[in-house]
Write a protein that binds this DNA or RNA. Sequence first.
RNA 1: GGCGCGAUAGCAAAGCGGUUAUGCACCGGAUUGCAAAUCCGAUUAGCCCAGUUCGACUCUGGGUCGCGCCUCCA
Length: 465
Amino acid sequence: MLKIYNTLIRDKQEFVPIVPGKVGMYVCGMTVYDYCHLGHARVMVVFDMVYRWLKASGYDVNYVRNITDIDDKIIRRAAENKESIHALTQRFIAAMHEDADALGVQRPDHEPRATQFVPEMLDMIAKLESNGLAYRAADGDVNYAVRKFDGYGKLSGKSLEDLRAGERVEVTDSKNDPLDFVLWKRARDSEADEVKWDSKWGKGRPGWHIECSAMGSKLLGQRFDIHGGGADLQFPHHENEIAQSEGAQLNEKNRGQFVNYWMHNGFVRVDEEKMSKSLGNFFTIREVLKKYDAEVVRFFILRAHYRSPLNYSDAHLDDAKGALTRLYTALKSPGLIEGGRVDWNEPYAARFKAAMDDDFNTPEAMAVLFELANEVNRTQSVAGAAQLKALAGVLGLLQRDPQVFLQGGTSGGGLDDAAINARIEARIAAKKNKNFAEADLIRKELLEAGIVLEDSAAGTTWRRA
RNA sequence: GGCGCGAUAGCAAAGCGGUUAUGCACCGGAUUGCAAAUCCGAUUAGCCCAGUUCGACUCUGGGUCGCGCCUCCA
C-alpha cells in the first residue's frame, strides 16, 4: 500500500485515488526563457520516478506537466534578444526536451502551454469574480481577494496575520490587500501584440498562478489526486492555486478539495545554499552533462530522498558515478541480460516495493539494488542479474548495455577503441612472454589515459575511469 | 519578526524503541605474475541537555546550529 507524504497534512498518508485504479497528477513545470538547471532536473526526475512507480503499481496515470510560456521574464528576455516570444519559448522548450530526454525523463501525458489555455483561464477568473473572490483594481488588473477565501494558508501553514506581520509584502499597487495577487494583468502600450489577449476586462494577459489552476482542471478535472512541484512553490503559488480552483467551484454542487495529495521536492543546493537563478549559483543541465553521464546525474538525484536537500558538487557526482559503476559491473559478467519484467514475488523485489511504497524511498530501494548486485556478483545468477536490471528499470536506471556505460564517457585521452584494443593485445603478448615490466607499463599508460584494465579468466576487459 | 524543515560514521545517505542499512574512501584477508574487478572480514555513527522506558540514534520537552518560505523562483 502506497504512502505519500502530503504537504497538506505534513505527514505520510495512505494513497487512495479519487477513481480506483486511476491517478491524475499535475506538476508545475518550467518557465521557458532559459536553459534548465539542476534544480529543474530534480523536479523532472523526481516526478518522473513518481510517475513510473505509480504505473508500475498498476495505476492508469494521467500526468500533466505544464509549460509557462508567457510571463514577465519571458517578455523581458524576448525584448533583450529582439526575438518573438514564440521563437524564444519554442527554442527553450526544445532545449528542455533535450535535457529531459537525456536524463531518461518520460514525457508527461500532457504538456500544456499557458498560451493555449487563455480561454479556460478567463472562464475561471469570471467564476471567481461572480463568486466575489476577484475584483478589478483601479489600475485595470484583476486581482484575487485573498481575505474573501476561507482557508487561505492551509497548505503553507501561514495565517494571513502572519503574512501581514512579514515586512516583505509589496504595498505599491492598487490591491485591496497587500496579499492579493494578480489574475489578469492589464496590457501595457509598450508590450507587443503577442502578449495581449482580449477579455471582458480589456486586453491583457494571465497572471502566473491562474495558469496552473486552469490547465489542471481542464486536463484533470476540478479535483485530482496529486499535485507536485518544488518546495519553493508551496507559497504562494500552490496556496494561490487552491484559492483559485476551490474558489471557482464555490457555488457548485459537487465542489470539493482541489487536490488530495500535495508533493514537494527538496532543493538542489550548492555549498549548502539553494541553487537558483537569482543567486546565480546554478549549473545548467547541459553544462553538467558535458562532464557527467546523464544516467549518473539521474542516479545522483534518485539516490537521495526526494524531500531531502541535495548538495551538488563534483565530488558527489564522482561518488555517484562510482556507485553506478558497481551496479553496471554486476550486470556485465553474467552475460547478455534480457530487459525482462520484475518478478515481484522475489524477496529483493518485495523489499524494493516496500521502500518505494513508503513515500518513494529511493535511497532504500537502491540499497536493495546494491544487495542484489552483491548476490549477482557472488552467484553469477543470470536470473538475479535480470531481476536487478528490471528493478532498476523501474527507476529508469541500468537499461543500457553495461559495456556501453562502462566504456562510455569522456576520459580516455582521445584514445579510440581500436587504439585501446591494440594496446591490450600488446600487453597480452608481453604477458605471454612473461615480460611483466612491459605489460605493467602498458597498463600504467592506459590508466593515465583514463582506461582501467581488468583481467579475468575470460580475458582482459577495459572501462573508462 | 512569523511559519516550516533538518542535524547519522572521513564523505554521501536510509530504516528502525532492543539484532548488518547502502555506496564511496580507509584497513586486513581471498583471488591475481602484480594490479583492477569481485568475494570475505574489520574499523568509523547518531549536535547538546533533560525526560519517558527494562532498554532511545529512533518517542517527548528544551537548547544550539544549519536550511527554506514569507518577493520571481523547481
